[in-house]
Nucleic acid binder design. Sequence first.
RNA 1: GCGGGUGGUCGGAUAGCCGCGUUGCGAAAAGUAAGAUUCGUUAAUGAGGAAAGUCCGGGCUUCAUGGAAACAGGAUACCGGAUAACAUCCGGCCGGAGCGAUCCGAGGGAAAGUGCCGCAGAAAAUUACCGCCCGGCUAUAUGCCAGGUAAGGUUGAAAAGGCGAGGUAAGAGCUCACCGCUAAAAUAGCAAUAUUUUAGGCAAGGUAAACCCUAUCCGAUGUAAGACCAAACUAGGAGUAUCAGAUUUAUCUGACGGAGCGUUUCCACUCUGUCCAGAGGUAGGUCGCAAGAGCAAACCGGAAACGGUUUGGUGAGAUGAAUGGCUAUCGCUGCAAACUUUAUAUUUUAUAAAGCAAUUGUCAGUACAGAACCCGGCUUACAGACCACCAUUUUUU
RNA 2: UGCUUUGUCGUCUAAUGGUAGGACAGCGGACUCUGACUCCGUUAAUCUUGGUUCGAAUCCAGGCAAAGCAG
Length: 132
Amino acid sequence: MNKILVLKKRKDFLRAAQGIRMVVSTVILQAAPRLSGSSESFRIGYTASKKIGKAHVRNKAKRRLRAVVRDVFPSMALDNVDYVLISRFNTADCKFKDLKSDIKWALKKTNKMLLGEDASSQNTEQPNTPSC
RNA sequence: GCGGGUGGUCGGAUAGCCGCGUUGCGAAAAGUAAGAUUCGUUAAUGAGGAAAGUCCGGGCUUCAUGGAAACAGGAUACCGGAUAACAUCCGGCCGGAGCGAUCCGAGGGAAAGUGCCGCAGAAAAUUACCGCCCGGCUAUAUGCCAGGUAAGGUUGAAAAGGCGAGGUAAGAGCUCACCGCUAAAAUAGCAAUAUUUUAGGCAAGGUAAACCCUAUCCGAUGUAAGACCAAACUAGGAGUAUCAGAUUUAUCUGACGGAGCGUUUCCACUCUGUCCAGAGGUAGGUCGCAAGAGCAAACCGGAAACGGUUUGGUGAGAUGAAUGGCUAUCGCUGCAAACUUUAUAUUUUAUAAAGCAAUUGUCAGUACAGAACCCGGCUUACAGACCACCAUUUUUU
RNA sequence: UGCUUUGUCGUCUAAUGGUAGGACAGCGGACUCUGACUCCGUUAAUCUUGGUUCGAAUCCAGGCAAAGCAG
């Protein structure tokens, strides 16, 4: 199992914001396919703005998102796509089960839309098969 | 016992599964400008009292360097001590709050000068409206002119010490007693200051968190500082260059010009010397980066802050930013039930109040808050728990 | 992370330490057959907590919020 790659550049975040946007009650998911086809795995970024609370609240939100991503993303996410998770006001407080199911649902729906777009533009992109 | 005050300590615990950062060890492939990277590990370790606000002080960094003076700008401000330093801390003085323990105070100067004090009031700073009084003119009085006065009046936040007696034409510290104020001396104290005595008669209201004056202190910058390694892009042109002397003919010495971090001047010292253009050390990486004016205990000195000696231990280092997610058990707080006691009605029981030692719960809650170069403070936020001492009141002995 | 600045009716702004003013918006009325324009009236604020002062929007200190700069 490979390590999960993390987005670090502001440019990448801006590009992800141009893509598909999925809003659920606890979190916002953004996704955009990468243009250069060389890289293999998906990448992911986390955002927690000052709006949701002070520093320790933001850290906690990001940590919980990371915990969910570790469980969910390796088996479900698509290759060659950049995802961005934006935490909302209740991300740090809500129950972990709810957060997990929300993200699962959002990811499934987003992937469907991405595959639809790719089929129309005739780019063959296969879903990542569970490795372990 | 109730409700208070001061100082201090702590700020959930244990176990399981899955993960993250750093370091150590082992392995793998690739070979770069440099540094990386990946995998494994029954190896070690990983957030606070405020890590916060960024409000003071210091270390360290660069601005090439040191010293002196003046100006500008800023900070501080009762006294003594502590400290590397401070706006911090300790002790004391004075003023204010409280029955008290105790708490609060930017607490120098208003006879160096300038400004301001709305409305009201005669007058807001060398005051005279009403009034009181003497004199002159007129003369029953009233009135007019020239003075004296600060007792009384109104206004206001504030009106030239207060109160009583004497005194006077009327008055006035004009005189006296008491109180307040100021000055001097003596005593106590290192001092702020306090007490006593004597004298002055009151010296001209407030405001300096208005300008200002006095005393003391202060250069700017802020680890994204700064040092090093360094891809890509790129490294050009005009044409002998301040003056004098010496020679070794491209060097030295002196003069002149320029620069030296708030501004100006002086001294020392250093760098620099024709013009245009330009590459800066950018992307990226490494260092800076954690043993410290540090922590704990004992003893000694000191009234205390604090200082000294000895011993012990020393364990974060991220950079889209690690220290977590879930579960179980326990702890703590609240709530409810049940229980115990008391009172009332009634005698199956119900209602009310108090209690919390023990019991139960598919119950609720478990604060403030996340290191970012490092220390000393201050300020602000904080569920709750514990310890010591002190004072008020009530009860008992 | 470091640094700097600013907070006044719903909005945009004034105000030497001395009654918080104006415009737009809102509400009510007049004008009109009705609406607009116009006119009159009215509601409404000094971010917050303390201090200095006789008296603070203003001066000083702490807090809160917002904006900007460096990258």
